[in-house]
């Protein structure tokens, strides 16, 4: 049952054509900007570097380790790419990976690829990058701080991207919002641990062997724009998420039925996952689930900062 949720690649048919087109529009804009930014950053090294690193990410996704009962943790890699190369380059790298995965291996659909690129490319890369830079700024420069920040980046990138995926599925009336968010969110909260650990360990190795590399990632273009982009995307997605409830959907019959379905779902307590995910004073289950995940995100982020701070303080105390 968990298998399909482990992969975030949406296949064709699971999003409506209208929503797919919107995804492509957003993806195209992001890709064009990413090309321009990365070109400025890397000049004529761009094509071979992005291409080979994309090949690396795809190959690295095969490096796994068992997490729990049959599932294994493995890397998506957007956060790692963003940490080392900056979020725009990471978006490009993920685009190449997703393009080949979709075209060659039918991992993810072709018409819905726009959203896959937005989710696993832009959203994962930018949220991971933001988490990393913020955590690092707050937590300090020690090795432990950087690794903790990397862990947070990995975890957050996976969880946020999975939430976005769930919202898109819900907006296409493929999956009920609450269930999609809860299921995807919980599974990826677990998988995110694997991503976090691998990202942190990989960064740890880079710190030892080529520390200069991470400096360049920190100064890569992206910072302020990243915040703007993420906020914009989040707002757009939230609007999309709640639109089936707010306004009649294009397919006439579904309009009333859909809203009834969601409300009915909310009232019945038939899904065991729900009770764990409701936050007491927020009544609407979808909002509650999202709020719960956000709380989790803040906890992980806060934890990374605290660890970083402690490690830095101990380091200076040793001097």
């Amino acid at each position: 049952m968990l298998a399909p949720l482990v992969r975030m690649h949406i296949p064709d048919g699971f999003l409506t054509p209208a929503i797919s087109v919107i995804g492509w529009a957003i993806a195209v804009v992001l890709i064009v900007v990413a090309l321009r930014r990365t070109r400025r950053q890397l000049d004529d090294r761009m094509v071979p570097m992005m291409g080979v690193l994309a090949a690396f990410l795809f190959a690295a996704q095969a490096i796994n380790f068992p997490v729990a009962a049959g599932t294994s943790g493995h890397l998506i890699g957007a956060a790692l790419a963003a940490i080392v190369m900056g979020p725009w380059a990471a978006t490009l790298i993920m685009t190449a990976v997703l393009a080949v995965q979709g075209l060659l291996f039918q991992d993810g659909g072709l018409v819905v690829m726009g959203w896959n690129i937005v989710n696993m490319g832009a959203i994962a890369a930018f949220s991971g990058y933001l988490a990393y830079t913020l955590a690092r700024r707050l937590g300090g420069e020690s090795r432990a701080a950087v690794m903790a920040a990397s862990f947070a980046a990995g975890w957050i990138s996976v969880v946020v991207a999975s939430l976005a995926t769930a919202i898109e599925l819900a907006a296409s009336l493929t999956s009920p919002l609450v269930l999609a968010v809860a299921a995807m969110g919980s599974v990826h909260a677990l998988i995110g641990v694997g991503e976090g650990v691998i990202t942190a360990a990989a960064v740890g190795l880079l710190l030892t062997t080529r520390p200069g590399l991470l400096q360049s990632g920190a100064t890569a273009p992206g910072g302020r724009t990243a915040t703007v982009i993420l906020v914009g995307l989040a707002a757009a997605l939230l609007v999309a998420a709640f639109s089936p409830l707010a306004s009649p959907s294009p397919d006439g019959l579904e309009a009333v039925a859909a809203s009834q379905g969601f409300l009915g779902l909310g009232r019945s307590a038939s899904y065991p996952i729900l009770p764990d995910y409701t936050v007491p004073f927020v009544s609407h289950p979808a909002l509650a689930t999202i709020a719960a995940v956000m709380v989790g995100t803040l906890v992980v982020f806060g934890g990374a900062v605290i660890i970083g701070r402690l490690a830095t303080r101990r380091k200076t105390a040793d001097l």
Binding site: D44, R45, P48, M49, G51, V52, L53, A55, F56, A59, A60, I63, N64, F65, P66, G73, L75, L80, V84, G194, V197, I198, T199, A200, A201, A202, V203, G204, L205, L206, T209, R210, L213
Partner: peptide, 25 residues
């Protein structure tokens, strides 16, 4: 620990890929 080993493998593969991309360039 296993996660750490996997991460180290990923890290060293990354470096190798980066160096290869420099040679290809």
């Amino acid at each position: 620990w296993q996660g750490g080993v996997a991460g180290a493998m990923v890290g060293s593969l990354f470096l190798r890929a980066l160096e290869r991309s420099e040679r290809v360039h």
